[in-house]
Structures are given as structure tokens and as C-alpha cells.
Simulated scan of single mutants.
Amino acid sequence: MTKMISTAAAMAGLALCIGTASAQTVGIATSNPGSLFHNIGTAVANAANEAGLNTTITPATSPNQFIPFLNSGGIEFGVANLQEVNYALTGEAWWTGNPNENLRIVAFLQPLVEGIFVRADSGITTLEQLRGQPMTDGFTAQNTILPQLDAFYSTAGMTREDMIPVSVASVTAGADAFMAGDAVGFIFAHGAGKVREADASVGGLRALGVADTSDAALAGARTHWPTAYFTTLPAGAAPGVLEDTVYIAFPQVVFTHANVSDDVVYALTRAMYEQADTMAQTFPPMAAFKPNDMRGDPGVGQFHPGALRFFEEAGLN
């Protein structure tokens, strides 16, 4: 059960913060409907609203499209994975030397666990069998996916050039291309609504895992995606997980702009901590969210002072 802060002083402080925060509507930028981040953003907004905030979500194709808007103060919060926030902060990778220096971390969520999905009846059971096959690629509106694909393929000693590229704009477009028969597989996060749609559409999926689970293979994957690690999902844990399988995972975060008020960030952070059950009811994979793990290692970034104020009150070190 989620720990609650129940001192009179803390409750009075929360009432003041919510009163201040609810005077305005705050937004959470997410990826498109069907994506994992849209599901998570909806769950976080529901938790915030349950706690008395006035919160809406605003979908975009991907975080690399909405991050500059958030960095400029156009919206208050966003949901993404830590690595793409790190790249945005420093201006590395697809940010081509243009840093988004106003980003601040609010809290860590449950990890994103990623698979490469094929039809269960395709006869494809390993990554190596994708060689020479048409696979979703390009991701012109979602730059973050290409290095994730490279990390996955590297565990089988392959690169994206070993497949026939089927160019798509985003992971949701990639799933649509797969369902249309244009590609034999697509990459997506476990638990997302689009994966369930594809599973029903083709009569069942198989989620391929990493080919080599050694430390050397992980080091190779991290040359493409530095925050990656390996994790095992048991059979039946999600659509396509037909046996115990090792996948690539990495941290996800809620983040904000440096100039969003401390009271608003404090109130959202506290709402997530205390409304974990609400988030899991909205989006069942969020049952993996652990409130006591919200203060993770932000890497090159830093936490917003409003989040730090709550962490200190909650005893999260």
C-alpha cells in the first residue's frame, strides 16, 4: 500500500498547493493514442485530477516533436523515456547541437520494456530470422526509435541494414504497416494499446526478445542506447510473450519546464505518489509503478525543486 504523509502541517501544505495549482489548467504532452506514453499520460492526468488538480493531456506524434514546445514553456509536463530527455538536454544525437536546457525531471515511472513483434503463426522465433525480411524502419517523426532498433539488433550481431526497410513515421504507424501486411514485424513497448490491437488483428503475436543476454551484448546495446538494460518477462505477462523471454528495458520519466511553479510540480508529484492505485486502474501496466522508486538517478538532468520538496517530505532519498 502506498505510504501517505499525514501530519497536519503536510496536509495544510498540500491544500495550499492544490489550491494554487487548480487555479490553472496544466497540460501533459504525450505521444499519439495507442502509444505507451499516451496510456501513461492519461493515467497520470487521472491521478492528478483525482487529487484535485485540473489536468489535461495533449497528444503529439512523439516526444522529439513536443519536447521543444515544453522547453519553451508551451506546456507544463511531458512523458518520455530518460534517454531521450538526456539527449534533448545536451543537444546530442538527433538534436544536432541544439540543447533544451529548461527541462527538469519530476519523477521516475515504471520501466519501458520493448519487444519486436511478429505474427505468432509466421514461423519466426528469433531475431536472426528477420534477416532479409521487410521490417519497419525510418521513423521520420520519432527519431528515438532508430537507436533502440540498433540496440535490439546488435544483440543478434545485426544492423538495420540487414533487413529490408519499410519506412514509417512512428511506432503507431509501424504497427499499422504490420497489420496491413507491409512488414513482417514492428517494434513497440509491451503493454501499449496498439500492441493489443495488433494482437487481435492478426490472430496473435510473438514478441521476440534479445538474442544474446551476456554482459558483452548488453555493453554493445548500450553503445546505441546508453540507459538500456535487460529484463525478463514471464510467459503470458503481455500479448506476444509466449514463453519467459529477455527484453530490452529503460527508465521512463515525467518531466517539466524549469519555470513551472514549485507548487504545481509538488502537487503533481504528490498525486502520483498517493494515487498509484488510480493510475493502475486507468492503465493496468502501471501496476508496475513503485512510488518509492520515483526518485531515481536523473543522469545528466536534475529534478525540479517542487519534486525535490515532496521527495524530502516523503523520505525518498
Rank of each mutant, 00 (worst) to 15 (best):
M1R: 12
T2W: 05
T2H: 07
A8P: 00
A9H: 04
A9P: 00
A10D: 13
A10E: 10
A10T: 05
M11Y: 00
M11E: 14
L14S: 04
A15Q: 14
A15R: 13
Q24M: 09
T25I: 15
A29K: 08
N32Y: 08
N32V: 14
G34W: 04
G34D: 07
S35N: 11
L36C: 01
G41P: 00
A47S: 10
A48V: 06
N49F: 09
E50A: 15
N54I: 07
N54T: 11
T55F: 08
T58R: 13
T61F: 09
F66P: 04
P68D: 07
L70S: 01
L70K: 00
L70P: 00
G73V: 05
I75E: 10
G78Q: 10
V79I: 13
A80T: 12
N81M: 08
L82P: 02
L82A: 06
N86E: 15
T90D: 11
T90L: 14
G91E: 07
W95Y: 15
P99E: 06
P99T: 05
N100K: 15
R104F: 03
I105T: 05
A107R: 03
L109Q: 06
L109G: 04
L112K: 09
L112Q: 15
L112V: 13
E114Q: 14
G115E: 10
I116C: 08
I116L: 15
G123T: 10
T125Y: 01
T125I: 02
T126A: 13
Q129R: 10
Q133H: 01
P134F: 13
Q148P: 00
A151K: 05
S154M: 06
T155M: 10
A156V: 09
E161D: 15
D162A: 12
V166I: 13
S167E: 14
V171F: 02
A173C: 03
A175N: 02
A175R: 05
D176V: 13
A180C: 01
A180D: 14
A183D: 06
F186W: 01
I187P: 02
F188A: 15
H190C: 12
G193E: 14
E197V: 15
A198K: 11
A200I: 01
V202H: 01
G203Y: 06
G204T: 06
G204H: 05
L205H: 05
R206E: 09
R206K: 14
V210I: 15
S214L: 12
D215W: 08
A216V: 11
A219S: 12
R222T: 07
T223C: 01
H224Q: 14
P226G: 02
T227H: 03
A228N: 06
Y229S: 13
T232H: 00
A235C: 06
D244P: 01
D244Y: 07
V253E: 04
F255E: 12
V260D: 01
S261K: 10
D262N: 08
D262M: 01
D263M: 07
V264D: 07
V265W: 02
A267M: 09
T269K: 00
R270E: 10
A271G: 02
E274F: 00
A276K: 10
D277L: 12
M279W: 07
M286F: 07
A287N: 06
A287M: 10
A288G: 00
F289W: 11
N292V: 14
D293P: 00
H304C: 04
F310E: 04
F311M: 04
E313T: 10
A314I: 01
G315H: 09
N317T: 15
N317S: 14
